[in-house]
Design a protein around this nucleic acid. Structure first.
Lengths: 356, 356
DNA sequence: TTTTAGCACTTGAAGCGTTTGAGTGCTAAC
DNA sequence: GTTAGCACTCAAACGCTTCAAGTGCTAAAA
């Protein structure tokens, strides 16, 4: 209460309590702490200190005759100031590198793979998401004539990706018509965001195509769809079953609420985006009530952003508040670094494939 | 024991027990059954009948002083002979039609959407999967020159779909080279399954391309990848949180095992494909131990196959053994029918888009 | 022969008081 | 400021009793 700063001994005790609680999940008592060589004090002294820490709000007591558990403030202080650097084992480092060796092409695959990795390296539920920015443009169009009523529209996007759409018509189309609409698109429909695909532009194209004006509508529609697909926020969650290991999720009611949030991608995306404002060292840590969703009041969310090709992608995990912060933070940092290297490094790797 | 056939009254009683147990999930007693107007008999008589049914293996008693619960044999008989046709409400029918109105293009999206539908209409976990058949061929190739080191390979597949791959090279390529390799591919690489892409063929192409032979390897590789992507079995699971509603999944250990199976797609695919042999009326029902996985020994799996464009797709649900069979069977049938109509009907619908 | 009323019996679930033990806060001595 | 000692608290575990649901069996009724 009086002192804002914690004495070194209080810090040691708080750290020991959080570490122990993370480890075995139960309230921590003074006797147990007295065995810690770092803290050379008797149980009685430790009890006094713990009473202080509780008064300051860093600890809570489930009931009078139990040990102490870190409060959310306690976890917060631990994460910000006390957590020790985890050093990944040689084999963990090797495995991350191995799993991130091959470049993936499709954003969808990337998200799946990356969240799977996060889950498997941390033993918590892995998540990966991209957010929509609404700034994609088509730099160039091309087309392939498939049959009298079908053609393939090829779009080279400002993100560096190439996307295609098969367009099926209810009327026949000549190769010459296709050439003309492609040319027109390259003149009038490049460097526009989806807002730019306005009615006047469409009408102009229709006029230009004359008798074949009916081709314009499905084409513009396909362009629009493609842009919004690329732009749309998306999220992948892998390894929800990992959560069931932890006793905090043995209450089925709470678990159901949490799974509900994790399954409704839109809602989860909302939750995450409303809170992803501040940042510390690039890694975001949201503990319990710091999360925007009530269903997540007993869970911690950790993630880190990576920028690839101008787009933001994030990797992280979801787990109980007594998460192994030091390991998770290290692993997510390594994963993020690995992903960044995978995409932002010049080719020369074993698999120089498509760059997203 | 003596009689193989069940008397009409025994059938009525068995049906009433299964219906009641599905409804409120608890063992059913003789007193409760006596209130059923269909069965006009006293509790004592019903007790005698129930003792018979238990001896025949259709019922089990959790403990002496409890009512009876259907055994797996009991559920099996119920599903095969006793279950009453559920009649979907007008609003349910309308909603299915509404949700299946727009044609989807990508197999991936179809699976996601369809499993989501199954989950939302039945309140059990929805699944949708396609199996790999290994028979895809490329009918025709085309290409688009993107830049000196990149081109787009367009493949028209035997399934009627068009797939594309961006190919990135480590050396520059002329438009003329691209024209030649495309032409060569159309001559030598059409109508082959992935087994047909053998070394002799590749070497022949390399010889044919002369100085630009290095283009052959990445091209063939992309073709091969595309075929295997289209061919690969895939499965989507939606709404696992629905399971938590049912008390049979309040045991966290079992739930974890089940979720483990549902999350590992390969394993789930194996489980399903090993047992998808027989069929009755096109709908597959696997109750408890009939499932190939031990983790599913307390769950029922129901699905139905639909054929679209020569490929098999299946929709279904996973839930507790005391599933609402009549409703689920009806819903899955309707869903399957709706999917079939969506893809196998001639266009003329509001959205005549790409046909898978 | 089948059905039914009556009754003794079984058994898990629920309720309740007791014991146990881990852990605390406080006081007084160091 | 630190520590030993001790009385105190309280959830969890245990054992016991009661309760109620449901059965199987017997003997009478249909």
């Amino acid at each position: 209460m009086e002192d804002k700063r914690l004495t070194p001994r209080k810090q040691k005790i708080l750290r020991a309590i959080v570490d122990a609680h993370i480890h075995h999940g139960e309230p921590v008592g003074s006797k147990y702490l007295a065995t810690d060589v770092q803290i050379s004090a008797s149980p009685a002294t430790i009890r006094n200190e713990m009473a202080d820490l509780e008064a300051m709000g860093y600890l809570v007591q489930p009931h009078t005759s139990a040990g102490r558990v870190p409060s959310e403030l306690g976890y917060r202080f631990y994460v910000d100031s006390l957590v020790r650097q985890y050093t990944a084992t040689r084999s963990e480092i090797d495995e991350i590198n191995e799993r991130l060796r091959y470049k993936l092409t499709e954003m969808d695959e990337i998200l799946s793979e990356v969240s799977r990795l996060a889950a498997s390296f941390t033993d918590y539920t892995g998540i990966a998401f991209k957010s929509g920015v609404g700034q994609v443009r088509v730099n160039k169009y091309d087309s392939v004539y498939l049959s009298a009523k079908e053609f393939l529209l090829v779009m080279m996007l400002s993100t560096g990706t190439v996307k295609t759409k098969t367009i099926r018509l209810s009327f026949p189309l000549s190769q010459e018509d296709l050439r003309r609409i492609t040319e027109a698109a390259n003149i009038y429909l490049t460097n526009l965001t989806s807002d730019g695909l306005s009615m006047p532009v469409i009408m102009k194209l229709e006029a230009l195509m004359g008798a074949s004006g009916a081709i314009v509508h499905p084409t513009v529609k396909a362009i629009c769809e493609t842009m919004s697909e690329v732009d749309t926020a998306d999220i992948k969650v892998e390894g929800v079953n990992k959560l069931l290991k932890y006793p905090e999720y043995s209450d089925v009611g709470e678990l159901r609420d949490l799974l509900g949030v994790l399954e409704e991608k839109d809602r989860l995306m909302d939750v995450i985006s409303t809170q992803a404002t501040e940042e510390s060292d690039g890694i975001h840590v949201y503990i319990g009530a710091e999360n925007a969703s009530d269903a997540m009041k007993n869970t911690t969310l950790i993630f880190k952003d990576v920028y690839i090709g101008g787009k933001k992608l994030s990797v992280g995990v979801i787990g109980p508040k007594r998460m192994n912060y030091s390991k998770v933070i290290d692993m997510i940092n390594r994963l993020a670094f690995g992903i960044d290297r995978m995409f932002n490094e010049e080719p020369g790797l074993p698999e120089p494939k498509d760059k997203y």
